[in-house]
Nucleic acid binder design. Structure first.
Lengths: 337, 337
DNA sequence: CTGAAAGCGCTTACAG
DNA sequence: CTGAAAGCGCTTACAG
């Protein structure tokens, strides 16, 4: 009967102090309404007295659920993801779920390691923001999952994001309405569904406006240096362009700097528009005109759909789109002359 | 003998396939070198055949360890933290430890909820980046923890960061060496150890250079709008200032924009220097001269010290400082005339 | 409304 | 080097 070295109180300790069984302690804690008020009070008092806190491992083992959801993203430092994360957290917290963040860094080995959390029971479901479908066999069949932002073609998971084609269409229309005709588009990275959708929206808007002769596509990417290269390309090859629609804000900033180095003034000589409305878009000079995505709501909605899956309720399949809007700031003006 | 509904293979399944006991399966997986090669091979083959993955909950319960460490920070979207996080992750991954991120958002209720992960066994130790000591009783005694960046005065936890007083001293010296005399300092938020240390370093450098008459302190903070206010204050009250040292990069950007709105040119009329070297410092115009902190190394070192605590090895107490350096860019020049 | 008992899937002293 | 068995701390069908 020697004392255990680890003194963390357990249900047994609480039961002893409260004068009830461990089953009753568990019930009072998990389903307070199915025990008598007297019992409930006694148990709660015993919990404070002992400083009891449930042992999550035991609970997970017994329930066969971790109460954790895995958020898979390519780069946690990318400001695009932080607001989505907040939305996810809000809903998860309300549902008493913990969030585990898996940062792939674009590395497939890391991605595989992260997915392991679903196989070993550390997480019950996943929110996939990295745009890459889990390789076959890496996920137990029927694992609840939702893809965010990028669609995961050929996958059964529901998807939440922005209607990118529509948003790109609206952005291009916006430039046309400012009087621009020679409008270029700097795309995102190849083999990305976002890139395709935004490019399609741009092409569609140009075509519908009878400007198909002015379509100018430049291969880009989502980082600053991609924008710099694109700006250089633009200055060299299409110097008479009056407006550029970029696939995201960061590349738009690179385009602007590069254009400035080539002697252009933005927006006086050339207008530049981004996509995302990251926090820095307001601080950058010129303040960036861009497409705002409802990132917080996207995160919330995705988490809600995952929750429905976890609870075996019917859930929406296919894509859910949240509203976007154009944010007018200073990087776009009418064409000169 | 009905089939269980949940088909995840267990050690029993692996044991049956490999023709050994569950104890041996566990040994082959956890300490491959203490079983015979023949057994090891049989177990590994059985693992692939069955698609076995350890049940983390059972493992945690049995070992009384979660293999997870908790990283507590105020704001995950703050770029200052992301590189520190990478450093932490690198070391944690090498040690086969999972990271759980707790985002307090400066909310003490959330902070308390996050600390609960240490009491319920979901995490074995903590890395504290939010500058706030856990309230008494919120952490089981002897919980391994390390504070990062901000010191936690009155706390037994080791600390890893930058020697802020020294770094601020160096930054101020740098401005003095460029020929500046009337140098202002925009501080961080009150009641923050970083603020105190950086202010002290500034005052010390000014005093040592015989410039104590030119000490100009402006209460600031770590966000953009704090900088804007400070810039306004500066323009109104000390218009002949030729250089400003700001407590961080974000506030330095606010100071610059605000000064520009007051008609100053940076750095021609006035030089502005930041602190941190966040990623955006290179994109901002003018590119920001600042103090680089070894954020990745700070994260690594902190995780290493936490690891030593977890393994009950002796570990360094007190503060560990990693080297900082001045990064010269375009927001600082010599004084006009 | 409550209790006694089984069992979730591991790991590890103990014995050989 | 290996196996049989106990037990980590919960929760929940079962019985009353």
């Amino acid at each position: 009967m020697t004392k255990k070295s680890n003194n963390r109180p357990t249900v047994r300790d609480v039961a002893r102090v409260a004068g009830v069984s461990t089953a009753t302690v568990s019930r009072a804690l998990q389903s307070p309404d199915i025990v008598s008020k007297k019992t409930r009070d006694a148990v709660f008092a015993a919990v404070s007295e002992t400083g009891y806190s449930v042992n999550t491992a035991a609970q997970m083992l017994r329930r066969n659920r971790s109460g954790t959801i895995l958020v898979i993203l390519p780069d946690i430092s990318n400001p695009f993801f932080s607001k989505i994360l907040s939305g996810i957290e809000e809903v998860a917290t309300r549902a008493n779920l913990t969030i585990l963040i898996g940062n792939t860094n674009g590395d497939s080995t890391r991605y595989a390691n992260i997915l392991e959390n679903l196989r070993n029971g550390r997480a019950d479901g996943a929110l996939i923001l990295n745009g890459e479908a889990p390789p076959d066999g890496m996920l137990p069949e029927g694992t609840p999952a939702v893809s965010i932002s990028e669609r995961l073609d050929g996958t059964p998971y529901p998807h939440v994001g922005t209607d990118n084609e529509r948003a790109a269409f609206d952005a291009t229309r916006y430039l046309i309405e400012q009087g621009h005709r020679k409008i270029a588009h700097v795309t995102g990275p190849q083999d990305n569904t976002l890139t395709k959708d935004r490019r399609d929206g741009y092409v569609k808007a140009m075509t519908e406006a009878g400007l198909s002769d002015h379509i100018r596509l430049i291969d880009g990417g989502f980082v600053y240096s991609d924008g710099e290269h694109a700006g250089h390309h633009l200055a060299k090859n299409w110097p008479d362009t009056t407006a550029v629609f970029c696939a995201n804000d960061e590349s738009a900033m690179g385009v602007i700097r590069s254009l400035q180095q080539h002697g252009y003034s933005v927006p006086d000589d050339i207008s530049v528009m981004g996509f995302d409305d990251v926090p820095f878009a307001r601080i950058f000079q010129p303040e960036l005109t861009t497409v705002h995505q409802a990132r917080n709501l996207i995160g919330q909605r995705a988490m809600e759909i995952l929750l429905e899956q976890l609870e075996k309720k019917p859930f929406s399949t296919g894509s859910v789109y949240l509203d976007h809007r154009i944010v007018s700031r200073n990087s776009v003006a009418g064409p000169r002359n």
